[in-house]
């Protein structure tokens, strides 16, 4: 960091005109100066590595049940929670203990990063694509179309988001036995794909269908501020079509704040997945999800607090990392927005 500053200084001395620093380069420099954001980024990279190499790191397969090892706890856990002494069955084979069917908690937490991280990256992508397209169309064409599209967003906004996801989940998860129409056939096919991914597809669909409203509003507002600028008029004058103007001229000018907003929303997507799995509408067991593990652990929280505590801490660390990184990214991309939501 210091060397970069010195290099800049040297350049200013050597030549009277300062080397132009691009927007992204400048942003990256500011980001690298933010210690909290760098720690966050480090943890995120670590989590990505853990997710990719889960089979090599985890001591046991995530679905390996040893029924005789039910609820076993390691010796150090009993020292931390002395009240466990009278009933705890000790086994140091499991670093964090075993769950209610004798599966290694640590291995399940390690595999659980896969679910949370996939949601953290795919969720924002879906909401960004849907929301931005909607907002672009609404803002660009304006007038009555804009009015109707935005009122629709208002109504969906008043609809409790989580309940909407729950309804959608139940709708998607219950498929007809035989296909009586094309619609049924599509749903059965989707169900099969979903089952192949351990129940992730419908989580994405659910998040995608509910999280785009904010993005649509933001995108529309941004479009309105750009729409009347001269370069748009110029583009129109040389005969560019609506699609070209929207995606080649307007989009690059408004994408910055949208990406920042999505980065800041990542923790909420992770929470949504954890919540859905907590209530039993998320991933299909035995796919390990931290939310599912917390819900199962909460059943035994008075006797074996480690079963809920361990996945809860994993979730907290992940949320920290994304929050610090998102915060830093916002400060770096738009220093004026520092400390705002």
């Amino acid at each position: 960091m210091a060397t970069q500053a010195m290099r800049r200084g040297a350049e200013t001395l050597a030549v009277p005109t300062r080397r132009p620093v691009g927007f992204w380069e400048d942003a990256f420099y500011r980001l690298s100066r933010n210690r909290a954001a760098m720690v966050g980024a480090g943890i995120v990279i670590l989590l990505i590595l853990v997710a990719i190499f889960a089979p090599f790191i985890a001591p046991y397969p995530y679905d390996k049940q040893v029924l005789t090892d039910r609820d076993k706890v390691p010796a150090w856990m009993v020292k931390v929670f002395p009240f466990m002494e009278p009933y705890a069955r000790i086994s140091d084979r499991y670093l964090l203990g075993a769950d209610y069917v004798g599966r290694d908690l640590l291995s399940r937490i390690i595999y659980g990063t896969r679910v949370s991280l996939t949601v953290a990256f795919v969720g924002p992508l879906i909401s960004l694509i849907v929301g931005t397209t909607y907002g672009l169309i609404s803002g660009y064409f304006g007038g009555r179309l804009d009015n109707i599209m935005m009122r629709l967003v208002d109504v969906l906004y008043a609809f409790p988001g989580l309940l909407f996801i729950i309804l959608l989940m139940v709708f998607f998860r219950q498929v007809p036995q035989e296909a009586r129409s094309v619609w049924d056939a599509i749903r059965i096919q989707m169900y099969k794909i979903d089952a192949a991914f351990g129940g992730m597809l419908f989580i994405f669909v659910g998040i995608g269908l509910t999280a785009w409203e904010n993005m649509a509003r933001l995108a529309r507002g941004q479009v309105l501020s750009v729409r009347e600028k001269e370069f748009i008029e110029a583009a129109r004058a040389i005969g560019a079509g609506h699609l070209r103007i929207m995606f080649r001229h307007i989009l690059p000018n408004i994408i910055g704040p949208l990406i920042v907003a999505e980065t800041l929303a990542i923790p909420s997507y992770i929470t949504t997945e954890a919540f859905l799995s907590f209530i039993g509408l998320g991933v299909n067991p035995p796919t390990p999800s931290w939310g599912l593990m917390i819900s199962q652990g909460a059943q035994a929280i008075r006797t074996y607090p480690n079963q809920a505590l361990a996945p809860a801490l994993a979730l907290a660390i992940t949320m920290f990392a994304f929050n610090f990184l998102g915060d830093g990214l916002r400060d770096a991309l738009d220093p004026r927005m520092r400390g705002t939501q």
Binding site: A36, F81, F83, P267, T271, A274, F275, F278, G291, I294, G297, A298, I301, R302, P305, A308, L309, A312, L313, L315, A316, M319, F320, N323, F324, D327
Partner: peptide, 29 residues
């Protein structure tokens, strides 16, 4: 930021295990 990072689903089990089960200061449920 710490507060934003600990939703109920995380903070709930932590509080119950520490203050309810471990220290026994408050009724866990």
């Amino acid at each position: 930021i710490f507060g934003v990072s600990v939703p109920v689903i995380v903070l709930g089990p932590i509080l119950v295990s520490i203050f309810g089960v471990w220290l026994k200061w408050l009724p866990p449920t």
